[in-house]
Design a binder for these strands. Structure first.
Length: 324
DNA sequence: GTTATTTGACCTAG
DNA sequence: CTAGGTCAAATAAC
């Protein structure tokens, strides 16, 4: 398939992609039209991780992402939150920095002062699995989103203060299929994150759902390995301490993605992107480098990941990633 | 006592 | 002005 190999892409290329997405969408609309007269088909589709509805949702997301990222009205879009070398938390600008120099503000320096995440490298994934991506995340917010039934949860890298890692992710249940999640990764990990091996959160895992896949834009869908056969249903290992430098009232944190879920957090912690490929992806995107589709290969064979990824569909893998 | 999560407030981009 | 991303005090969990 055509892949990210050609990035950075020209504007016409992105426009073509957006148009292609919409054309593909028409195919799904036709399918949907067929299904309208057959309720059993609709029911089946809604329960499918790779059904028409799910794929349509992904298609629209991708088309919009391509559209927005390429700024199709002709104005070039320059990323404002590019890769930065790790820096200490203390190495930040004065409080008014964000106001005086908004365009180039690399990190939030004042409460509420930040660049919209769309300007950073962004990766969007649809998944139904609850597995760890190898990174330590800490929840820092939860918001009700307009026209969305489900709240969005915000996570940042646990090493944000320790190593200045700016990676964040958002997790939200999809409206079309609440058992699916849309996970948006923003920024890239600049932390030295090797504290633990990926694991799966089994509590919310539906073992009957054997459609979890990792594809990362590869052409060949991964094997549908059952989660239960790949991972023992264990929770996390003891948490390493997060040695954040003292920052006034800032408290020390523990690296704990295992404890993300609480009775209040319906989405719980879930991740699905293997750590190393993610790093590669993010760097490649941020640096506007070429990305080999091989970099997106799942380590499923070694780690037993199971991802429900819309990119398993050959036609849509190209549009999985939302650039800038 | 320490650390993580919750949640209302704050702030900015659009 | 609104929606959404983040902060940080309060609270919960361990």
């Amino acid at each position: 398939m055509e892949s990210f190999l050609s990035w950075p892409e020209s504007l016409p290329s992105r426009r073509t992609k957006a148009l292609q997405e919409l054309r593909n969408g028409k195919v799904f609309v036709d399918k949907l039209q067929e299904m309208l007269g057959r309720p059993e088909k609709i029911e089946f589709d809604l329960q499918s991780d790779n059904g028409v509805v799910v794929q349509m949702m992904g298609m629209f997301d991708n088309a919009l992402s391509v559209y927005h990222s390429s700024n199709l009205n002709g104005n070039p879009h320059y990323p404002t939150n590019n890769v930065r070398s790790p820096r200490s938390w203390d190495d930040q600008k004065p409080k008014d920095y964000c106001k005086s120099n908004r365009i180039v503000t690399p990190v939030k320096t004042k409460r509420g002062c930040y660049n919209r995440r769309k300007s950073a490298s962004t990766i969007v994934k649809m998944t139904s699995t609850l597995i760890d991506d190898g990174y330590a995340w800490r929840k820092y917010g939860q918001k009700t989103i307009l026209n969305s039934k489900h709240q969005r949860n915000y996570y940042r890298c646990s090493h944000k203060f320790e190593q200045g890692c700016q990676a964040t992710k958002q997790v939200q249940k999809t409206d079309s299929k609440p058992s699916n999640y849309k996970i948006t990764y923003n920024g890239l990990h600049t932390c030295n994150n090797s504290q633990r091996a990926p694991q799966i959160y089994m509590e919310d895992l539906d073992l009957n759902d054997n459609s979890f896949l990792i594809s990362f834009g590869t052409n060949t869908p991964m094997e549908n390995n059952k989660v239960g056969t790949c991972f023992p249903p264990v929770k996390h290992t003891p948490k390493p301490k997060e040695n954040r430098p003292s920052l006034g009232s800032l408290k020390h944190e523990q690296v704990s993605s295992a404890n993300y879920h609480t009775p209040y957090d319906p989405i719980m912690e879930l991740s699905q992107v293997p750590s190393e490929p993610m790093s590669v992806i993010s760097y490649a995107l941020d640096c506007e480098d070429m990305v080999s589709s091989g970099a997106f290969s799942s380590p499923c064979s070694t780690h037993g990941y199971e991802i429900d990824d819309i990119s398993e569909n050959h036609e849509y893998g190209d549009f999985l990633f939302d650039l800038w």
